[in-house]
Structure formats: C-alpha cells, structure tokens
Design a protein around this nucleic acid. Structure first.
Length: 403
RNA sequence: GGGGGGAUAGCGAAGUGGCUAAACGCGGCUGACUGUAACUCAGUUCCUUAACGGUUCGGCAGUUCGAAUCUGCCUCCCCCCA
C-alpha cells in the first residue's frame, strides 16, 4: 500500500530487552538522527524550550524536541517555507510534533483545571458552556484563547499542519478524555479517536505522497483506565499502518503500569511507543518497565520555573534555601551544577525583582531539572543494556522517595 | 513668619460615624503543577486560639449608645508664599 515504507528514513531497532517484562532499550532512526531509547523528549511547544537555548539543550544531552501543531498552526506555512521545524527552530536533531489533541481537554473538559493523576483533583469536568473547545465527529472547534478567534482542527487539518511543520515524527489526532469522564463517554470518545486515527493515516499518506518523502506517524491510544477499552483499541490500532504509537490519556497514578501493560501487550513489539505527557521519575521507570520507549512532559521546566528543583533524594523547594551554599544536587552533571551555582544563589535570582535575573534563574533551573530527567533515562537505558534495570529502578526510587 | 496637605498592618494604598481586624496591590510564607491558556495558580500574612478572645489606623484627651472616620491639643512629614 505505501511506497514510503521502503525508503528507510524511519525505523526502530531493539537493542536489549528487560527479561520478564515489556521493557526494552533501542534506537529510533530518523532523518535528523538517532534517538537512543528510553529517552526523554524535551518539550518545545512553540519551537523552543522555554528559557533553554538550543545550545543549552545540547549541553544537557537532549536528543529530541517535541513541538505542538496546535500552537504552531498559524505559522506552519512559514515553517514549511524555511525548510521545516529543524531548520526553522535551529534544533538540528530529531523532532516530533503533537497533534493538538491535548488541547481538546485543556481548553475543553479540563479548562481552568490542573491536569493531575489523582482522581480527587479531577472530580468534575468544566461546564460545557464554559469550555473553549467542543468536540464533534468532524473535529474540534475552539476559541483561541490568545487571539479570541474561532478556529477548527480535525484530523485532516492536524495532518496538514504537522506535515507543513515537518518534524520527523507526527501524532495522529486524538481526543484526550479527563479522569472525570465516565466509561460510557470514553467508549464514545474512543470510537471517535479510532475513526480519527484512520482519517489521520489516510490524510498523512496523501500528504507524504505529494511531498515525495515520508514523515513518521504515530497512532495515539486512548481508552481511559479500562482494560477492555485499552486492549481493544490497541488491537485495532496495531492493525493500522502506523510507524509507532503514542500512549495517551489522563492516567490515574495507581493504574499507569496496568494501562501501559494492557496496551503494549497488544501492540506490535517492533514499533516504538511514546508515553505522552509524563515525567515523574516513578512514572518514567514504570513506563520503561512496561514497554514505553520515549517520554515527554512540561513538568521539569514548569516546576523549575516555579521553584521545585529535582534531586536524587527527592525534590526541594528552592525558596527555602536562602544563603545555602549547597549545590542543587550532589554529583549532578548539568551545566548549572557544573558551574557551581548554589541553592542560595539560585534562590536569590528567583526572588530578584530584576527580570533579567529571574530569566537567568529560569534558564539555570530548567537545565538542571531537564538534565535530571534526561539522565534518568540515560541511566535506565544503561541498566537495561547491562541487565540490571530492576535493581537500578529500586535503588533510584529508594533514594528519591526515602531520602 | 504666613498658607495648605498629610500620618492606616512589613511596604504602598483604600476607607470620612455602626455592615471594619480594616478593600486592593507589592513583599513574605505554605502548597500545587505530568502531550505548556502555566515567568502560572491556590491558600495564608496584627497577637492568640481548636473555637472563643485580645490589641489596633502618629500621640493624648474629648464628643457619641458606637470613632480609623467628628472635636481640641501635641509630635512628625510634605508643598506653596515670604
């Protein structure tokens, strides 16, 4: 059916498996280079990671950047004209784009709410009358909160946008449901997401044919926290001709491992899987064990800006370390720690009324937290290859949660 | 020497008789944050308490059932004219 399958621009190889589990280490080959997995993908929604330059990204050993079709939709022609996301953004490594599906929830049922993995924090959906995004079979109509303009994105539009942006890996258009949505609603939304997956695939194929080269497309699995939905959608999506899979959803913390297992037991082993939107160390380690290859999340940079600094012995609130001479984290190899910044100095930058100093804090703290999570995936990869992943996981989590 | 304006919680600033322990902003302190509506958001910020209660609006003395708000005197600050 597809010619592009033979042009060999995108592929995945498994280097080593975790015995007795779904986890593996591997390499995703893309036109812009390889991604050694497991890997954390830095989020650069609008084509740049907030307060972190491309040079800084290289310094923290970031392999890939994930941008967002929703945010870049209006300038996607410009991006296409300048040669695609890599050259437009100045990031010369592999890139991914999200479809904009997440915005269905963040502007819709979850508008004004925190996206959390705890059920108690997601008890109610936003009143439909107050939502900025509304779902129909065609796609999602929404009011752009920045421009106040009505707009629409369906699977076809999302593929057109993403192909213009031209990242190496694209995501099918999906509907992310919230933890407050019922089983019945998830059944309905999931069926729609599956139809959108087929439409995404078809449109994407068409666009790639006319472009003359292939960009990879991942199908995105939803289905909430229900095993029957997760397994059935994974089976259906496995039959579709995707290059990889996105594991999506608003996950309940305690069921994350099960959900990933249900999905990945049904998906083809030979294709890469991206766990969308998670980066807490315990989530990443469970994700790796359950067969996820790549991860992305805004938390490392956002929490850095908000004063939460990651350390091997748990997170700290930097504002509590006035005058502290301590480094952020012992033996950290990030540029911030390598330059010997202390907790007290960083706190002073954050608390400063000088915007330049604050921005410097955002940069230094973001690099540290990103490097912390990237290093976690690097160490996990090493452990998988060395055959001691379970020991590594246990030791890391012991240090992280029990000081 | 003459005339005018002002003093409110850590800071700035509302409030001109009861609904005021006192709006709001800043700063401080807690907490949250997971495909970025997020350099954001929530709570808290006189003392004490589990609740109650106590002491406040430059100072002192009054008027009044009741005063940050009205009167008198005092202290300090600012502006204008000499």
């Amino acid at each position: 059916m597809s010619e592009y399958k033979n042009n060999n621009t995108f592929s995945f190889e498994i280097t080593k498996r975790i015995p007795g589990s779904l986890g593996r280490a591997g390499i995703i080959h893309t036109p812009h280079g390889d991604i050694k997995t497991p890997a954390f993908i830095s989020v650069g929604t609008k084509g740049e990671v907030r307060f972190v330059s491309m040079t800084d990204l290289k310094k923290i050993n970031a392999q890939t950047m994930l941008s967002n079709g929703y945010h870049l939709r209006n300038i996607s022609p410009e991006i296409a004209a300048s040669g695609g996301l890599a050259s437009w953004s100045g990031w010369d490594g592999p890139t991914m784009t999200d479809s904009g599906g997440f915005q269905v929830m963040s502007l819709g049922s979850g508008l004004g709410k925190v996206v959390s993995m705890e059920r108690e924090k997601n008890v109610i959906n936003t009143d439909p009358k107050e939502r900025l995004a509304h779902v129909s079979e065609d796609g999602v109509s929404f009011l752009d909160p920045f421009t106040n303009q009505e707009d629409f994105i369906g699977p076809e539009e999302s593929m057109q946008i993403q192909c213009r942006i031209g990242a190496d890996i694209h995501m099918a258009y999906d509907e992310l449901t919230s933890l407050a949505d019922s089983y019945d609603y998830n059944v309905e939304a999931l069926a729609r997401t599956e139809r959108w997956a087929l439409r995404s695939l078809e449109e994407h194929q068409k666009l790639c044919d006319s472009l003359g080269y292939h960009q990879a497309l991942y199908g995105v699995l939803q289905g909430g926290r229900w095993e029957d939905l997760r397994r059935s959608t994974a089976k259906k999506m496995a039959q579709m001709d995707f290059d990889g899979y996105g594991l999506g959803g608003a996950f309940l913390k305690e069921s994350l491992g099960d959900i990933l297992r249900w999905c990945n037991e049904e998906l083809p082993e030979s294709k890469p899987r991206h766990l969308l939107g998670l980066s807490r160390p315990d989530d990443i380690l469970i994700g790796i064990e359950m067969g996820a290859d790549t991860f992305d999340c805004v938390a490392p940079t956002r929490e850095a800006r908000h004063g939460k600094i990651y350390t091997r012995h748990g997170n700290i609130n930097i504002t509590k370390f006035a005058d502290s001479d301590e480094k952020l984290d012992e033996n950290c190899d990030c540029p911030t720690c390598q330059a010997n910044w202390t907790r007290g100095q960083l706190r002073a930058l954050l608390k400063s009324q000088d915007q330049e100093k604050k921005r410097q804090y955002y940069n230094l703290a973001s690099m540290h937290n990103l490097r912390f999570i990237i290093r976690l995936t690097e160490e996990a990869r090493e452990a998988v290859i060395n055959g001691n992943f379970k020991e590594y996981k246990e030791e890391f989590l012991n240090n992280y949660f029990h000081k």
